[in-house]
């Protein structure tokens, strides 16, 4: 229903995706489980605390392959902890890996 209404209004797939991402950004309400988080939010609440603060290497703007990112997240390499699907869901991780691959370097981040 919603999709056809959007199409009828002439909205393209990209806009629908953006709307979906927007709702994923919504915060948590009392008594509700944490909703799926957008990649920006996952990055800011997990990855960015180490990558970009001199603890882990810089990963933004490096065109890292999504498959590599997913392996690193699930296995935890060297000093990095691993992250389980219960912490970062497969759906969140898929989006996150693509988002990191496509990201631009953030000049505010520190490290190598």
């Amino acid at each position: 229903m919603r999709k056809s209404a959007c199409v009828a209004l002439g909205l393209g797939g990209a806009v629908i995706a953006a709307l979906a991402a927007g709702s994923a950004m919504a915060g948590q309400e009392l008594g509700q489980p944490l909703p799926q988080r957008a990649p920006e939010k996952v990055y800011a609440s997990v990855c960015g605390y180490c990558h970009g603060t001199n603890v882990g290497p810089i990963i933004l703007g490096r065109k890292l392959a999504p498959a590599l990112i997913k392996t690193m997240v699930r296995s935890g390499m060297n000093g990095m902890p691993s992250f389980r699907p219960s912490e970062i869901s497969d759906a969140e991780l898929n989006d996150l890996a693509v988002w990191i691959e496509k990201s631009k370097a953030n000049p505010k981040e520190k490290g190598k």
Binding site: Y49, T53, N54, V55, N78, G79
Partner: peptide, 17 residues
């Protein structure tokens, strides 16, 4: 406040964590 900086300890000695 929130931080994970101290995880840097895990790479003081080599890379093995």
């Amino acid at each position: 406040g929130l931080s994970l900086e101290e995880i840097g300890l895990a790479r003081w000695k080599g890379n093995g964590g």
